[in-house]
Nucleic acid binder design. Structure first.
Lengths: 252, 252
DNA sequence: CGACTAGTTGAGGCCAGTCAATGTTGGTGG
DNA sequence: CCACCAACATTGACTGGCCTCAACTAGTCG
């Protein structure tokens, strides 16, 4: 009721029927990475009652924009998104690259406004979780409350990790760290950790890493020449993960 | 009881008596920026029962270290701290500069281990808030729960703001943004926004901004030569805030 | 097929890093 | 009180890594 649907009635009933058939948290393949981690059946059912809206976004569409009123968190069910922060003068900085099981929108809690923007990098399904109802439910369910805190904390951890990359690494190390980060997150999700598709453009990767697109391109080429990876446009195959790790860790 | 004091009994009773006299949340000058924001008297009293430990740290002492078990959040009552993240090979990156009313330690919730280190930059008083008890209390007190979420979100926002600085600004802009950030946070706390003391060394400022100490020093000198600020070692006076703002915002 | 976007690669310049010398400040002990 | 020392800060000269500008190639879509 507090979240009136913009969709026509037919579409709404479609959404519900899809949900009943297969799009519930209880059967979501990402449940162990997302809010439901470790919840019992009852708790899971209650959580499922919150998540009534699941949306599909095509590549390039925005899940939320900077300045939008904050009403919900968004969990990626499939696909991927980037989040970007904007300067007052319009420069854009990619602050995150989000995969299935990850949540977006945390930055809006503090001010009731989203301060960043989330854009789908491919066709993407997103679960919308009304935040006031999530707060209410997590007051009753301690494990859910703790999961929410863990996810918030994880977001802080990944931001601080990126700070470390941007603040103290050279271009070569940044790109190596980026590839390794993707690799381990794909592994976590059951995908190949050695061969994957970069959903972002060179320009977006550059923005994420504080580099220019030419630098990213050059370094990927150089890694390939050195036999560390194989790149073909967006497809990357990691041939020598050990050498990449050495590149990130070793210094002085 | 679950948090045995390391202090001798006499010191412990000292701490308690100080608390009863004046060191309660209800009378803390930072309460409007910290957890108690907007709580009624009853809620405030309950929160006060959690915060039984307040510690003093001398300059250079650690509030918590990377790898410590996470049991509590830490609110700065007076003084200031830096938080640093460490790479596996021992490089250190300053990830935050914390003032009274700000909380530290959020990064530990996710993994039950602190992944960064907090060090006092001057004599500092810190309130220790046992996290499991805070979670329990915030299940009963919705406003407290929301405050906790706001603070977590605020931490994400400030990290992402720093990402923007590190990822997209030139050295000159970074230093200007840093000065303006300090200025507005001092104003929030009722201190002068135009004249303040930099508690960090040039090296620490450099680490925070992804620059070398010489670069920081040169830029402060250059700003002074241009009449934007006056610097004398750690003391800074902002003479032309408007020009500093223009430096951060304007670009193409 | 042409127009467009994304990516690669090269040449040259500049900003910030590196190395090094000197200055300043505050603390300690004679 | 002063001498001494260590830590912090400033400044200069030089270097080099990344950016800028630019040309070209490879896919993509109407």
């Amino acid at each position: 009721m507090p979240y009136p649907s913009v969709l026509p009635r037919v579409a709404a009933s479609n959404v519900i029927s899809i949900r009943d058939l297969r799009a519930r948290c209880a059967t979501c393949s990402m449940r162990e990475l997302c809010l439901p981690t470790g919840l019992d059946a009852d708790a899971m059912r209650e959580l499922d009652l919150l998540v009534t809206t699941r949306r599909r976004f095509k590549k390039g569409e925005s899940v939320f924009r900077s300045g939008d009123r904050f009403v919900a968190l968004y969990a990626i069910r499939s696909g991927s998104c980037k989040t970007t922060v904007l300067t007052e003068d319009g420069r854009e900085q990619v602050s995150g690259y989000h995969m299935p099981g990850e949540m977006m929108g945390f930055d809006g809690i503090g001010s009731d406004l989203h301060r960043c923007q989330a854009v789908a990098l491919e066709d993407t399904q997103v679960c919308e979780i009304p935040f006031d109802r999530l707060e209410a439910l997590s007051r009753r369910l301690a494990p859910l409350q703790h999961n929410l805190h863990r996810l918030l904390s994880r977001e802080i951890g990944s931001d601080e990790n990126l700070l470390l990359v941007l603040g103290s690494m050279r271009a070569e190390e940044r790109v190596a760290a980026f590839l390794l980060n993707l690799s381990s997150r794909y592994r976590q999700r059951g995908y190949s950790s050695t061969e994957f598709v970069l959903r972002m453009t060179r320009d977006e990767i550059g923005s994420y890493l504080g580099l220019k697109l030419e630098t990213v391109s050059r370094l990927l080429s150089r890694f390939q020449a050195a036999g560390l990876i194989r790149v073909q446009r967006k497809t990357v195959k990691i041939l020598d993960p050990h050498a990449l790790k050495a590149m990130v860790n070793e210094r002085e």
